[in-house]
């Protein structure tokens, strides 16, 4: 065995795993872009970017969703839908231009864009530069 001397191989594996795991390629690309965005905020800590990546796709119930969230909705017998939530009511959710009945959803994954703030708040710096 030899040691990997940085966390970059782990980050590459995570990106590879993300692209393989999600059949909806738009969602997979959005996740990868989010991993890259977090990494660019903490370029000294690829390991922390990797930790954040693990919590970027969160399974949520419809009551935890609000307009503006980016979600992947898995549907019974139909292709999944990824996009920004425009409206949500107790029985219907509008993702992009698609109206989806909540009763038809199998699961909803929310793209969490606050992972660094939640996991490592001391790495949030004033944007003075």
């Amino acid at each position: 065995m030899s040691f990997s001397e940085s966390d970059f191989p782990g980050l590459i594996s995570l990106i590879e795993g993300t692209l393989k795991k999600y059949k909806n390629s738009d969602f997979a690309v959005a996740l990868v872009n989010e991993i890259i965005r977090v990494y660019n905020r903490v370029p000294l800590y690829p390991g922390i970017a990797g930790m954040c990546a693990g919590t970027m796709a969160q399974t949520v119930t419809p009551d935890k969703i609000k307009a503006g969230d980016e979600v992947l909705v898995e549907l019974e017998g139909s292709p999944s839908q990824f996009g920004t939530v425009k409206e949500i009511s107790s029985d219907e959710i509008t993702v992009g231009n698609s109206k989806i009945s909540i009763s038809e959803t199998v699961s909803i994954l929310k793209l969490n864009k606050n992972t660094l703030e939640e996991i490592w708040p001391t790495l949030i710096f004033p944007e003075e530069v």
């Binding site: 660019n40 903490v42 370029p43 000294l44 710096f125 003075e128 530069v129």
Partner: peptide, 17 residues
């Protein structure tokens, strides 16, 4: 180096190595 520190000593993030 890679660290940023303002003139009074507060941490200001980093540049990419």
């Amino acid at each position: 180096g890679s660290n940023r520190t303002n003139f009074s000593g507060k941490e200001m993030g980093f540049i990419s190595p």
